[in-house]
Design a protein around this nucleic acid. Sequence first.
DNA 1: GTCTATACTTCGATAGAC
DNA 2: GTCTATCGAAGTATAGAC
Lengths: 194, 194
Amino acid sequence: MTTARRIGAEDSATRAALLDAAQALMTEEGYAAVTSRKVAARAGLKPQLVHYYFRTMDDLFVALVRRGADQTRARQEAALVSDQPLWALWELTTHPAGRTVITEVAALANHRKALRTEIAALARSLRDAQIAGVTPILGRYGATTSLTPEAFVTLINAIGQNLLTEEALGLDTGHAAARAIVEDVLTRYEGPRR
Amino acid sequence: MTTARRIGAEDSATRAALLDAAQALMTEEGYAAVTSRKVAARAGLKPQLVHYYFRTMDDLFVALVRRGADQTRARQEAALVSDQPLWALWELTTHPAGRTVITEVAALANHRKALRTEIAALARSLRDAQIAGVTPILGRYGATTSLTPEAFVTLINAIGQNLLTEEALGLDTGHAAARAIVEDVLTRYEGPRR
DNA sequence: GTCTATACTTCGATAGAC
DNA sequence: GTCTATCGAAGTATAGAC
């Protein structure tokens, strides 16, 4: 066992700097570029410090994802109490702080067991929070359609997320038309975006 | 320059075996696992053969993506001439042969310039073919809705693709409700799935 | 908390024999 | 077309001094 190994404090500024560096690398070059050497170099530190704060690279990835989920949760809550919450949610999905990061993390989760569980739990918790937040809002407009809160939140996220992924690739065929459909629905609920 | 380097024939069975191995690795362990050594080992060959058939690893990835696009194109054409083409397209999106591969390729394209261009062109061509195929079909039902062929194809793909990605993660909250919405639209056009 | 030093593994890629 | 041999670079991770 490796219980004897020391590990750095969670509130360390150095640790935060390493996470910042890892996030930047992931955005710019993908998860495969997030190596102990490159993360350290980017933060202006020695590679061994990465292993001091994160015993393994998987630990670093988990910390990265957790921090990202915390930020997303905060933005989500702000959107839900805003003037036009449905519009705000749509804009949040189509303007996430870490667009590339989400794609990379999804790919990573496909084959790193330790991450899969963690990421799935966080994603589920964010989704649940969205549904809970949207339910009373849609309720205000009456249950005139078959668009339940679950369906609304799931579809908004799926569409927004995928449009972004495609646009990152340089593919935007049909996007304007697809956005128009979504925004038409939003307008029907909350009126035009103010 | 490296013009002197020999390169294997495109119709070689060994080359195909290497691509098969690369595809399997990508599905099971992600793009980072697609290394010359692992690909060769999986195919029961020596690592140097990878470099004989593909000068660089990027060349291998390009070949892999091209082959995948060819397969997708064939399935797409079959769907479009089937009994219920809209339903068939939806099922194709939600049952792609290479689900994980698409996620991995999207992540890869985020940061490998040589691949980005190639992948974007292929994706655009597949999307264009879908729109061209769907246009006369939707036309048959009259232009009663604002759901243009561009919007239809883009939304179907975005939703199907994203539901799959989430399900791979183990996240299916709201999926049944979202699917119901889509399949309701399909039923309105083509009746219930036969 | 950060450093030096270091062990061991795996990577992409090439040269040249058969 | 496939092999042996081999390069240098980069990967994770640990021990132990300061």
